[in-house]
Measured scan of single mutants.
Amino acid sequence: TTVKVNGTKYKFDTPEEAQKFAKKAADKYNLKVVVDGDDLRVE
Rank of each mutant, 00 (worst) to 15 (best):
F21G: 01
G7K: 06
K28E: 12
L31T: 14
K4Y: 15
K28F: 13
A25H: 13
F12A: 00
K9M: 14
G7I: 02
V5S: 02
F21M: 02
Y29W: 11
G37A: 05
L31Q: 08
D38A: 10
K9Q: 12
D27G: 06
D38K: 10
Y29Q: 07
V34A: 06
N6E: 05
F21A: 04
T1S: 07
L40M: 06
D27C: 10
K4N: 13
N6P: 01
K4A: 10
V3L: 02
D39V: 15
T14N: 09
K20I: 13
K23F: 10
E43F: 08
D13P: 10
L40K: 02
V3Q: 00
N30I: 04
V35C: 07
A25Q: 14
A22C: 04
D13S: 11
Q19I: 15
D13Q: 11
T14M: 03
K9S: 14
E16C: 05
Y10W: 07
E17K: 07
Y29L: 14
V42A: 04
D27P: 02
Q19K: 12
V34I: 13
A22Y: 02
Q19H: 13
K23T: 09
E43R: 04
V3E: 01
Q19E: 11
T8N: 11
F12S: 00
D36P: 01
K9C: 14
D27M: 11
T2M: 08
K32S: 13
G37W: 04
F21D: 02
F21K: 01
K23S: 08
R41Y: 10
K4L: 15
K11Y: 15
T1M: 09
V35L: 11
D39F: 11
K23W: 09
L31Y: 10
V42H: 03
K23R: 10
R41T: 12
V35D: 06
K23N: 10
D38R: 08
G37T: 05
D27R: 09
A25S: 07
V34F: 13
K11M: 12
V3H: 01
D38E: 12
D38C: 09
A25V: 15
V33E: 02
L31H: 07
Y10T: 02
A26C: 08
D27N: 08
V42F: 06
K24G: 09
A25Y: 15
V42K: 03
V33S: 01
A18W: 01
K24C: 15
T14K: 04
Y10A: 00
T14F: 04
L31N: 05
A26D: 02
K4D: 12
A22Q: 00
G37C: 05
D27V: 09
T1V: 13
N6S: 05
R41M: 10
P15F: 14
V5W: 14
L31A: 14
F12L: 03
T1F: 14
Y29K: 05
E43S: 09
E43A: 08
K23Q: 14
G7A: 04
K11I: 14
A25N: 07
D27H: 10
A18N: 00
G7S: 05
Y29G: 07
